[in-house]
């Protein structure tokens, strides 16, 4: 099937669904994989390290959430290869999570509020 090369990058597999397979073979890909691995590992070690540092709890939580998002970015962008897909596809995947951010704001507020009221069911 490899001889049915598409003019841009990739080839048709020629199966019933006329599937288009995109090839992203990059000689530097192994380097990127290991670099991503080291970044994820160092962030995790750093997180465990500062968990016991004398830092205000709220600041610590903020640092952890930011680092979690950084780790998530590296996994999605490089391990899951989303950075090398079409931009529009990336937005299609990522943008719906704005709803989750909104949801977090609502439900955490709700949790605090129920706590302030002394509970709903007791």
């Amino acid at each position: 099937m490899a001889d049915h090369k598409n003019e841009t990058h990739g080839y048709y597999t020629g199966d019933i669904h006329n599937q288009f397979v995109v090839e992203h073979h990059d000689p530097k890909s192994k380097k990127v994989i290991w670099k991503t691995f080291w970044i994820l590992l160092l962030i995790t070690i750093f997180e465990v390290g500062i968990a016991f540092a004398p830092i205000a709890h709220d600041v610590l939580v903020a640092i952890f959430i930011i680092l979690t998002i950084v780790k998530a970015y590296f996994i999605i962008a490089f391990f899951m290869h989303l950075k090398h897909e079409e931009k529009s596809f990336g937005y299609t995947i990522i943008v719906p999570f704005i709803l989750i951010v909104y949801f977090i704001g609502m439900l955490i507020t709700e949790g605090n509020y129920i706590s302030m009221m002394g509970g709903l069911f007791n």
Binding site: G10, V22, S88, P96, I104, L107, E110
Partner: peptide, 30 residues
């Protein structure tokens, strides 16, 4: 999107699965 339908559907499944996990972690947070 220049991506095969199989991969695209896997991504869409993962988006829905991520929503499921998000709701669980959100309930936990609340």
């Amino acid at each position: 999107f220049n991506v095969s339908w199989g991969k695209m559907m896997m991504w869409f499944f993962l988006v829905s699965d991520a929503f499921t996990f998000s709701t669980l972690i959100l309930a936990y947070g609340t």
